[in-house]
Design a binder for these strands. Structure first.
Lengths: 342, 342
DNA sequence: CTGAAAGCGCTAACAT
DNA sequence: ATGTTAGCGCTTTCAG
């Protein structure tokens, strides 16, 4: 059996057409399931394509159709840094976006958070997914302004310039955790959030304040506004635990904040969960390793990524579908930090 | 002043040619600095391009040149999961790769670790960067087999099928940390590694064993071979600390392993750093939050990403440059976990 | 120094 | 049901 040489030139639709004795159109139609092609011709073409190792040249397709078939993904940072300590969440989102994009025939390109608007053309994407947006991201605003769809993970607060979002229900999560605290006998829960420009923080504050109002309790909340550094997190936790009306439970948005709270509590001789219950909104490996392990929500990042891609590609396929949204459940993972015998 | 309408069609090289009263060729040459074009013509063309808001259609360029101008980045996982607990490292690498790629005129596309070989064509990349490879990654092997360059971050052990690598010097790091232990008065350091298929683990084991041999010390090392789960990490740490000849210091490759060691030590009533010194190879926010904070190396992930892109694009531009490598320094960050008064 | 023209690989009217 | 043909926007010989 003769050794088949590796072809120098990639096999094109032309080669298949010749081999099959049909025209380019027929091959194109057969491959794309477009025009009507006789079943047997189509079968022959597919067989040939497989045999010759054909795969379409994406650039030619893109040039001809005018669609890039690419989408950008961006992790909206916080001064260049990710918000959370454990970015496994982000890696999971990114990987699932990449995989899902492929499933939909798209390619996911990565956009660094500090990219300049002028670089956006070089990306040549049809749309974008922005994770945890503030709404100020150049990628988001530029694309939106051009009419290109942007789907976010977490919502942009205020004016809706995006084509959809997927989010966890953080209002429900807040209620859930407050109940959880209540069940364990905690009576004065407080919240500790990052900047309120992120929807998860805004949702939580809103829910918490309503919850407190309904019970005639004075809400206790601290928001770290600028620079989510270790030091800032510590200061915030310190501020919370040094109050005269010190809370007996803290729901912290970010794992850093939860860790800082645990740290400060330990330093002040407060036992967790005895004197202080602690829960975090976003689970991460880190929290599982803390001492004691901290209660948190599993936000299902991979699912979030998939849904975002599904939404974006749906809008791309049919622009009238814009404005949809998907809510992914958040699952409370109860750990020792809130396990006080009620 | 008349409001200029947003053009429906993107402005093309044709529009510039018309506006400037020159041919397509001239514009193309001027823009790419290729042919000899009169300085003033070139200036006029650039001005026009800027004014009209021209930007090249990447797909047309790619189709014409036959170069994709895209590269894939992949975080080689461990059974679908990242190896470390704090993946901020990976996010940093990814973002810097994206930014650097852009600087070199490339677009970085994200490849999920579990991608199938057949998807690689859809990516249409000229080459790839694989972070922490085992050498088994389909992306790496498929591309290598096709003669497309692959640069790794961390080295592929064994046969060199890649076009270059960038790595931290983990042998030097190991020596450094062993000295550091020595300075603090620790006498029997052990190492705790992940699977030895990663170069950082292999380098460390090798260095450590030589170090021990030179001193006539019996090396104590435990490697977690399969499934870097929390449980596996705990078991490994347990195994290490329950030995009769218990080590008085542990150098753990992954942050998970270091945390597990701290955890087990605490449970056994061993004080850190008093009874046991602990250091980790890869720094992460997590380690800074541990109690006590753990000593580790800063590996400069952003720099690693940049260097990898530089290497890959250099090889792409000139294949004879293949085989180069870059070493990025690792900086020891000494924290409380090794701060025993010698 | 500049222009005409061919072609990259594919799609999509428009015939037939 | 299949073929003809004209582009998509750009690069690149080859002439002038």
């Amino acid at each position: 059996m003769a050794m088949r040489m590796q072809p120098r030139r990639r096999v094109s639709i032309r080669d298949i057409a010749d081999a099959a004795g049909v025209s380019l159109t027929t091959v194109s139609h057969a491959l794309n399931g477009k025009g009507r092609v006789q079943p047997e011709t189509r079968a022959r073409i597919f067989a040939l394509a497989a045999e010759l190792g054909y795969s379409a040249n994406p650039h030619a397709q893109r040039l001809a159709t005018g669609r890039h078939m690419m989408l950008a993904v961006q992790i909206s940072g916080f001064g260049g840094k990710a918000l959370a300590t454990d970015s496994a969440y982000f890696v999971d989102v990114l990987n699932s976006v990449s995989a899902a994009a492929l499933d939909h025939g798209y390619t996911a390109v990565l956009a660094a958070p500090d990219m300049r608007p002028r670089d956006i053309d070089a990306f040549a994407v049809d749309g974008a997914i922005v994770v945890d947006p503030t709404g100020e991201e150049p990628l988001l605003t530029t694309l939106a302004q051009r009419g290109a769809p942007v789907v976010t993970t977490g919502r942009v607060l205020g004016a809706g310039q995006t084509s959809g979002w997927v989010d966890n229900d953080l209002r429900k999560a807040a209620t859930r955790v407050l109940d959880h605290f209540g069940d364990a006998g905690y009576e004065r829960p407080a919240i500790l959030t990052g900047p309120l420009t992120r929807s998860y923080a805004a949702d939580t504050v809103e829910t918490y304040e309503r919850w407190a109002r309904e019970r005639g309790i004075e809400p206790i909340s601290v928001a770290v506004r600028s620079g989510m550094s270790a030091a800032a997190a510590m200061r915030a936790a310190e501020a919370l635990l040094s109050r005269r009306d010190r809370p007996d439970a803290v729901y912290a948005m970010l794992d850093v904040l939860a860790l800082a709270t645990a740290h400060v509590a330990r330093r002040r001789g407060l036992s967790v969960p005895g004197d202080l219950g602690i829960a975090a909104a976003f689970d991460s490996e880190v929290l599982r390793w803390a001492d004691p392990p901290l209660t948190a929500f599993d936000l299902h990042p991979a699912r979030i990524g998939r849904e975002a891609v599904a939404l974006l590609t749906a809008v791309l396929a049919d622009p009238t579908r814009a404005g949809r949204s998907v809510t992914v459940p958040a699952k409370l993972i109860s750990r020792a930090s809130t396990a006080r015998s009620g």
